[in-house]
Amino acid sequence: MVRIKVNGEFHELEVELDTPLLWVLRDHLNLTGTKYGCGIAQCGACTVHLNGTPSRSCSIPVSGVLQVDIVTIEGLSSDKSHPVQKAWIKEDVPQCGYCQSGQIMAAVALLEKNQNPSDSDIDNAMTNICRCGTYTRIRKAIHSVANVSGSKT
């Protein structure tokens, strides 16, 4: 039995301790907004916040997050009202949309740490893969949250 805190709620679960957090979220808690893309922390589709730090949940065993505040895409807001979600809607960022939960979680963490990220800050923080190629609109949406007009340097 493990006890984890996700989006402010505690859950007690029967689960093997080596199960990656991603699969606990998806298969035990039915929080399917967090996506499986690679399983090796390469693509970022599974990004969640652990005590506010963007983390790749596919490669973190549930045993490592027992004392941690876990926030998933579902926990950002109940009504798509988080400023980053609003920016994503305004810039019409998603195409297939599969990677966007992870992109948004990475962007939220970046903007919480750095309210006015430069293009190179975005390059460094936003290492999530998007195969549809929504990168330009992601950059634009992040800048629009920061309320700074950015240009690629």
Partner: peptide
């Protein structure tokens, strides 16, 4: 604007892998 954007910013969009059924095995 795309009609499918709102559901793609809060994790509620249902992709094939997100289907959840009672008593489902994997």
């Amino acid at each position: 604007p795309r009609l499918d954007t709102p559901e793609k910013v809060d994790g509620s969009a249902i992709f094939g892998m997100d289907v959840r059924l009672d008593n489902m095995a994997y």
